[in-house]
Design a protein around this nucleic acid. Structure first.
Lengths: 138, 138
DNA sequence: GCTAAACCTTCCCATCAAGGGAAGGTCAAC
DNA sequence: GTTGACCTTCCCTTGATGGGAAGGTTTAGC
């Protein structure tokens, strides 16, 4: 199966398949006489695994490790769980940060008249005016 | 005030100050005889504005527009509010995505024994096994 | 069996906001 | 007047992804 069909079958773009190969995430695909990549069913399964792991926000490096664990029949599930929990902490931290941004912004936008006049609490906040809502150093 | 002092005074690194200047976000700073950048109080205020706007997640391009509005005494606050709301939508969308990832991952990690045995619902999910929790195409 | 289109290959470039580091010029303290 | 701390510009790297060029291969139509 050539790269275009493999891309269609897995939902991973041809570009990204080549990139994953270059990064050593997947083994180099077989080649046809004409030097076209030739993907096996197993290759497709790896690509689908990668697509799902990307969908959960794992980095290429983390996915590389997850693939090794997946292929290792003697893996301790402890290791997989530890990776998941570490990634979960990262996600939660980033969500928290973004929620703080969003909450601040929501408050400021709510306080802004949004009309023809220039007075704007959003700009006042960015300019450093105290509002009772700015982030304090804890 | 030279770039090091300006960086300290504003919380924006010297690297980033030069970058913002190169990107046209701030006007080119004055120069001393020795070709050092020389920042005025007004420059510092611009840098602080940028730092706060970055803290709310605005992109360089958006900040460029916000700075123009800030400097324009005749701005309609409507424009600022519209920018804030657009950015807020982006933030909320990204938060939603990440929360879906985190929730899925939390469930999978919760279901994983995390011991010496190889059985692992996290890997099973990534490998495509149905779990009742995977994301469906709506 | 030829031709054109569709596909593949590699290689380089861009994104975005930041940092690293080299080579060389300037300034300040002692 | 030397030394060390600072500044300057320039280029490279990050991470995951896409764009596009130049050129080779395969396939479908005739």
């Amino acid at each position: 199966m050539n790269i275009g069909k493999a891309a269609q079958a897995t939902g991973v773009s041809a570009k990204m398949i080549r990139y994953y190969e270059a990064q050593g995430l997947i083994r180099p695909a077989d080649r046809t006489e004409g030097n076209y990549r030739d993907f096996s069913e197993r290759d497709l399964n790896d690509l689908r695994f990668i697509r799902r792991a990307r969908g959960l926000g794992f980095s290429i490096e983390e996915i590389s490790r997850l693939l090794s664990l997946w292929r290792d029949d003697a893996r301790p599930s402890r290791e997989v769980k530890a990776m998941a929990q570490k990634h979960l902490e990262d996600l939660d931290a980033r969500i928290r940060e973004m929620r703080e941004m969003a909450d601040t912004l929501r408050h400021l936008a709510h306080c802004c008249a949004g009309d023809d006049r220039p007075d704007c609490p959003i700009l006042s906040d960015l300019a450093g005016a105290p509002t009772g809502q700015e982030q304090r150093a804890d």
